[in-house]
Design a protein around this nucleic acid. Structure first.
Length: 281
DNA sequence: TCCCAGGGATGAC
DNA sequence: GTCATCCATGGG
């Protein structure tokens, strides 16, 4: 069904916190709009806001409200029952109970290339600057100036131009990775089908993608739930909670053995808790 | 001014 | 295999 004009709608989204989910450092293209957010994914541009357990949307996309609702439920992983995660967090004596303040945080199924590009840009960078670069890239190269540019567009760009947008030393990494994807457009589907370990092996070969960035791409783009990105915040909070602040090697392996397929979610809760000060580090 | 940020590439050893 | 150093940029 194809419909034209502004589409509006709403639906119940229990155990979902829009603000925390968008501001938890996993996605960089949303901007605040009145009491909600403006963003884009899957080629759709839309506005989102939330009142109690109801999520509202407005979009000019050529989709019906029902289709947009299904897109949103998939994007925000709303079909998942979070009870096993909450039980796990509550029953771990090392995890402070204040972490239950961030109930409703969910992992997003981002556009895959966008996640890959953004986390190449994230290395030794901070979230506010990644957001600024996201919007500069969208304005300069993206469709309508408000969507993240696809890999073909970036591959046709050049290093000097990307540096002029503030990418710094990451400019050649993004450019080369975009060109590699262009030369092998099936590679992203291949990674999607592969196991976590096989997928990570492939991703690490891209310039600017190491172990941590690969885990971010696998978690936020490919939704592989055993991925566990270990950045400076996660290292600090894990060392404090489980290693008496002593140095600890191979925290990735530690986390994967401890939490398995819930690791991705545990990581997101610990990251947000640590970065916002809810968990003391 | 200095320090830090969702690290990776490189070279020394 | 591990480890130190360098890399651009802007906010605090």
């Amino acid at each position: 069904m194809s419909t034209v004009g502004v589409q509006q709608g709403s639906f119940l989204a229990p155990d979902f916190h829009l603000q925390i989910t968008i501001e938890s450092g996993q996605v960089f293209g949303f901007s605040k709009f009145k009491e909600g957010y403006q963003g884009s994914f899957g080629g759709i541009s839309l506005k989102l806001w939330q009142k109690d357990e109801r999520l509202f949307f407005e979009s000019d996309a050529h989709f019906s409200p029902r289709e947009i609702e299904l897109h949103l439920k998939h994007y925000f992983d709303l079909e998942r029952n979070l009870s096993p995660l909450y039980t796990l967090l509550e029953q771990d004596p090392k995890i402070p109970s204040v972490l239950n303040r961030i109930r409703g945080l969910r992992l997003i199924r981002q556009d895959i290339w966008e996640a890959m590009a953004c986390f190449i840009l994230s290395s030794n960078n901070n979230i506010k600057r990644i957001q600024q670069i996201w919007h500069r890239l969208a304005k300069a190269l993206g469709r309508d100036g408000k969507h993240f540019p696809n890999f073909e567009i970036i591959a046709d760009s050049n290093e000097a131009f990307l540096r002029s947008l503030g990418l710094g030393y990451r400019a050649p990494y993004l450019l080369k990775s975009a060109r590699l994807v262009c030369e092998n457009v099936d590679i992203l589907k291949k990674i999607d089908r592969a196991s976590y370990s096989e997928a990570k092996e492939i991703l690490i070969k891209f310039p600017g993608v190491g172990s941590k960035v690969a885990d971010c791409i696998l978690l936020y783009g490919f939704h592989k739930m055993e991925a566990f990105p270990v950045d400076v915040w996660i290292e600090r909070i894990l060392r404090k909670l489980y290693f008496r602040n002593r140095s600890a090697k191979n925290l990735l392996s530690f986390a994967q053995k401890k939490w398995g397929l819930l690791g991705g979610y545990v990581q997101q809760y610990l990251f947000h808790g640590a970065r916002t000060g809810i968990l003391e580090t």
